[in-house]
Design a protein around this nucleic acid. Structure first.
Lengths: 351, 351
DNA sequence: AACACCATGGCAACCGGTTCCCTGGACGGA
DNA sequence: TCCGTCCAGGGAACCGGTTGCCATGGTGTT
């Protein structure tokens, strides 16, 4: 069988060398571009490269020490709008810095997370970015500390992005955003409208993101000398469906409240629909607020008052900080600020 | 300086071999797991592996021909909900099949697209999945045909996912979904309610996704013996902001219409807000429909009537079909069906 | 014309793995 | 006791690149 251009066997540098009538080293040098090569030789080599449609194997280059660096991004589910924005930030910054970007979804399974990190270590990824809150157990800290050590010993670096920090000493870069502060300001705003019974809706009970926001909720109450009713904390998860279901349930149980603060905008969206379905108006009958400021928040009706989180910036910073880290330098811990975006979904409680 | 466990120099298979007092081949065989190795030797090797926290370099393995296969996913912007769902499908199926998943955003720049494809060829990716509609120009077809050949000759495969197919003969797998059919059914539904002047809103004028939906819009009119007013086609892009802006503009110009079909749910969301801002009710004064059935569609108020597209399935199929493809086999071209989801945003025109 | 020097390109070692092929030793059977 | 067999493990070639070092040949200088 004769070789034609559509042949499925990738050509090697030696094929190019043979066709150009030079040695492999020369081809490598021509392609490298720094070593002096005569114009004639360069021409012959380039022609052979073109004719064979040759591209050097990036993996082989990597083994030889001149590869494109890679960076890995591990999250629970790319489908969530805030995760998607982080991913976008990570990806943009990675390509800006000439890195390739591997992505893995864990689907919330810790085993997958461990497997992925191990694979990334094998890939010699420059950094592994772990994204999104989680349950902050001793087991989590220990497991993640081990990951961090393991990656560090392989010359890589673990980044926790919106995820609880570890004990000091773990070689880890932490980029967080202020869940507690944002929720504090938001709930203070709600309370300032005169609300006294505020439902906190959604979020897994042991999840640091939900927990941080809950702390802000409680602190805002305490700052006003109020002690919130514990029965007003309704847990579930972070989905739209959870918001919908929990809201329906709260209404069916005739829970006494005049405002709802949802753990995320997704939850708020579901809750809003449940309120509408029950014939209630927002903010006339019930006020509603979210968290995340996803693009859709302003298209809910009424437009959702929420907390803006600079997710894309978070992703970008994660990459930059991790790649700028030099071994031995102190570990970075950044906390990004958030701010409340006041729209139309929070008003005074009904008279 | 003494070596401690936190040392940043990754250990090689020879380090492990030395520590276990065996040869590198033996370590490789122990880790490979197939070749017979005595229990004692295996124990020593495994201990050394554990002590050094050794992981074989995946790139070196790849060069030697036993690597983890990789697959690449190239899209415009992971932030769009439909793209995110496709990405999710791709990622899930990829990991299910034991593949790593590289992701790149082109930000709509053709040069980035070319660069990425070239990089993926260098990475020896098993498949490169190009996602999302585009302008279907001769230049596009030629350029993409070259990509396809180039990838094929490197033993890889190009997949077009929701993107216009090429001339026959291009070694490419195409997975599309039915834009025209979905829009046809949707617009037929709108017309059946009695609407006669239906605005088509958003979508880049030369973009195949918008174009397909527009064709469905036109066909549905023709099927009823209607000729739509060309001034009712308003182009922009696929963002929420475009929907908002175009709708405002249409209202300001006093365009005569009783229903709006948006190019995407995102556009519809922006349009809905503009309608609300203008004091119009939906569907009382104006009916509104979207396309994509993103999760948020049901939380708009009124819940959005739209066309469901199986995006996640699309991503999964793209991966499976591409990886199952054997060189020389005929090229696949799949067309996935869509269906209308009737909610509350389309009603009869005002009397 | 002889010398030095520099531009050019080939050889071979190396990156970190895998695997073919071969050897040494233990073990079983005659 | 001796021989054949089998099994565990080592040596070396190879995957596809890069690069240090050296040989060669052409040019410039005196």
């Amino acid at each position: 069988m004769t070789r034609k251009s559509g042949d499925a066997s990738r050509s090697t540098i030696r094929d190019v060398a043979a066709r150009a009538g030079v040695s492999a080293s020369t081809v490598s040098r021509v392609l490298g571009g720094v070593y002096p090569v005569s114009a004639a030789t360069r021409g012959r080599v380039m022609r052979a490269v073109r004719e064979l449609d040759y591209v050097a194997d990036a993996r082989a280059k990597a083994v030889a020490g001149v590869g494109t660096p890679t960076l890995a991004f591990v999250l629970e589910d790319i489908t969530g709008p805030s995760f998607a924005h982080m991913a976008h930030g990570v990806e943009r910054e990675a390509t800006r810095l000439g890195h390739l970007c591997l992505v893995c979804s864990t689907e919330g399974d810790v085993r997958h997370e461990l497997e992925f990190v191990e694979m990334m270590r094998a890939q010699r990824a420059a950094a592994v970015i772990l994204v999104g809150g989680t349950a902050d157990t001793p087991e989590y800290r220990e497991r993640t500390h081990r990951m961090a050590d393991s990656l560090a010993s392989a010359g890589s670096r673990l980044v926790l992005c919106g995820r609880p920090p570890l004990d000091p000493g773990a070689p880890v870069t932490v980029i967080e955003y202020d869940n507690e502060g944002g929720a504090y300001t938001l709930v203070a705003h709600v309370l300032a409208q005169g609300h006294r019974r505020v439902l906190f809706l959604g979020g897994r009970a042991d999840h640091t993101t939900a927990l941080g926001r809950e702390r802000g909720y409680l602190a805002a109450h305490r700052a006003r000398g109020l002690t919130p009713d514990p029965s007003l904390l309704l847990h579930g998860d972070f989905t739209r469906d959870a918001g919908h279901r929990l809201m329906q349930q709260a209404l069916k149980e005739n829970l006494d409240f005049t405002a709802v603060v949802a753990a995320t905008d997704m939850v708020a969206a579901g809750a809003l629909t449940a309120l509408h379905e029950a014939g209630l108006t927002v903010p006339g009958d019930v006020s509603l607020a979210g968290y995340d400021d996803i693009p859709f928040a302003r298209d809910l009706h009424p437009a959702l008052t929420t907390v803006h989180v600079p997710y894309e910036e978070l992703g970008r910073l994660a990459v930059r900080t991790a790649l700028e880290h030099t071994p031995g330098a102190p570990d970075e811990h950044l906390l990004l600020g958030t701010h409340v975006v006041v729209r139309d979904s929070v008003g005074a409680p009904p008279a």
